[in-house]
Every structure is written in C-alpha cells, then in structure tokens.
Design a protein around this nucleic acid. Structure first.
Lengths: 163, 163
DNA sequence: CCGGATCCGTTTCGATACTG
DNA sequence: CAGTATCGAAACGGATCCGG
C-alpha cells in the first residue's frame, strides 16, 4: 500500500483509468461471471425475448445503464457466451448472439425462473412458466431449435473483434 | 448499527433514491439475490459441503471477508433462504441452515455446476459432478434427504431473530 | 475462540451527458 | 444507434477491534 501523498487528486487520472481498464479479455472465473445480475439478465433476454441489439437490451424491464451494458456485453463475449457480429444490412448495427456455450445456460436460467416463480413475485410470463414446468426438456429443446434457426440468418457478417 | 450516518449534519447520502437497501430486510428482488457471487457460494457450501457455521463458510476456497459474509448471511436470512439458530451445545455458536426455499435452489446450483464443469475449469469434485450428470433427480433427492436428516438434529435452539 | 462490527482505502456501479 | 467519458455514490476487502 502506498502512503497517500499530500496532493489531492494529483495522480494522473487518465493514466490510472487506462491501466485499470480491462485491457482485453481478462481471466474469467465462471461463477464470478454468473454471479452478476446484469450478465444473467442479458443472457435471459437473448434466450427468451430474442433480443439481439444494444437497444433491445436497454429496453428490458430492468433499467441498465449504457456503460454497464457495454461492459457486460464485452465480458460475456470474452467468456465465450455471446459473440458480436456486424449487421450487414445496416452497417452501424451490431448483432449479439448466444454461442453454443451460451445456449447451454438455458437449463440454469430455466431452473432459476422456476424457483423464482414459485417463491417470489416474478415478471416472467405465466404461460412460459407453466410450459417450462410441464416439460422442461422440451422447452429447452425449443429454445435451442429457435437458436439454431436464427443462426442461419444471412444478415450477419464477420465477428467484430472486440477492441 | 446499520445506520451509518456519521454526523447529523452531513448525512442524507442515502436519502436519494430507494436506499432502504441496506437497513433492515430490504425488498428482495430475486434475481438480485442470485446475482451475487457470495450468496450463491454460501448456498453452495450449505448444500454440498454441509457447512453450517460462520467459520466454515470463511474456510471455503474463495476467501470472503468477515463483514461481507455477515452481510450475505443476513440477506439470505431476510430472503428466507436460510435460517439462523443458536447451538445449544455451544452457546457462542450459531448454526445456519437452508430453509425449504433454500434447498429448492439445489436444481439451480446443480445446473450451474454442470455447465461450469463442462465449459470451465471447475473445482467441484469430479465424482460429484459425474453423479449429478448421471442421475440429476436422484442426486438432488439425496441432497434433500440429507437436509431433512440434518433438520432433526437436536443441538439447536430457537431462532436468533437477526435484529 | 466465535461471530461479527467498525474503520478506511480501493474498486465498481450507475445516471447522465456526450460523441462517432 | 451504439457506445464513451465523467464523476459522485455505493460496495468491496482487509485489518482490526470487540462482546460473549
């Protein structure tokens, strides 16, 4: 630890920020990744509401700040849970999609939602909840099928190597 | 002791927006509860390693600070996921146990561990992982059975109403 | 000893303004 | 539209202290 010098606010803020900035994909401990509300919410939106774009995530019920969303999308990409592509029909847009590793989080999310819908007031649509309760495996299979179908969309391009 | 206003003159940093977060049992949004690494790790220890006491949680592989642990235990108790009892054999000790609501998190944890063991280096014992992969429902049934057996232990006393 | 509570420097979050 | 920059507020974390 450094004994704090007398001058307040004198240490170069730009330099500090840069060094603290996660340079590129840092080492990701798994449970740390999942142990974050926002990341899971993004995955949830990708899985269930079919959101793919920055603004669609912003529109979710829980209000996430733009900087936080950008950070979480980057982390998720680094963790290999999503990938980031450029929309070829609209060059300024990006498309975020779950990877295989990401879609495999479906069982985790489903269990969470079932637990929450049983014990807490939840905002999940009742129809979806009862569907996943009735036939968990089938429900997950449907999610995956939808994901595979969406993966064949032609409006995408090469990955945008984050940073 | 939760009111941390140092001096009457300078306070009100908390009064801004819905800052009843900390004070007592705050309203708990479910995914916020689960969206926290430490809380989930405590539940994991309760479920799998049979930890019941403060120091046992502290001994877990991931090092948690005592103040953080105390806070998370309180939150979990407020959320109805654990309860806190006094050990009648050793009056200075407390015993933390999963409630019904808490043990019902088992499927969530199991799915997480399976996912993590597939995609990431995980510290979960290989034997347990393959057991839960082979017979998920049976594995969870065993956890519950163990929990029910432990609930009949006589060395406990009345709840320590946290606050 | 056990289960925390308190202090305090560091890190992260989050609301908003701003930019390419 | 898709993010950065900024900055105060909150959470974290380690060390230490304390009541039983």
């Amino acid at each position: 630890m450094k004994t704090r010098g007398p001058e307040p606010g004198a240490l170069d803020p730009a330099m500090k920020r840069q060094s603290l900035r996660r340079s590129n994909c840092p080492i990701n401990i798994t449970l740390e990744m999942l142990g974050d509300s926002w990341s899971l919410l993004v995955v949830r939106d990708l899985l269930f509401s079919g959101a793919t774009r920055f603004n669609e995530f912003l529109g979710a019920e829980e209000k996430i700040a733009t900087n936080i969303l950008a950070d979480r999308l980057e982390r998720l990409e680094c963790a290999g849970i999503i990938d980031k592509l450029r929309d070829r029909d609209d060059g300024r847009r990006h498309i975020y999609r779950l990877t295989e590793k990401g879609i495999d989080l479906a069982p985790v999310l489903v269990e969470m939602i079932l637990w929450a819908s049983h014990y807490e007031a939840t905002s999940a649509p009742a129809a979806a909840v009862s569907a996943m309760r009735k036939d968990r495996a089938g429900f997950i299979g449907n999610l995956r099928a939808r994901w595979e179908a969406a993966s064949e969309t032609k409006s995408i391009e090469t990955p945008v190597s984050s940073k």
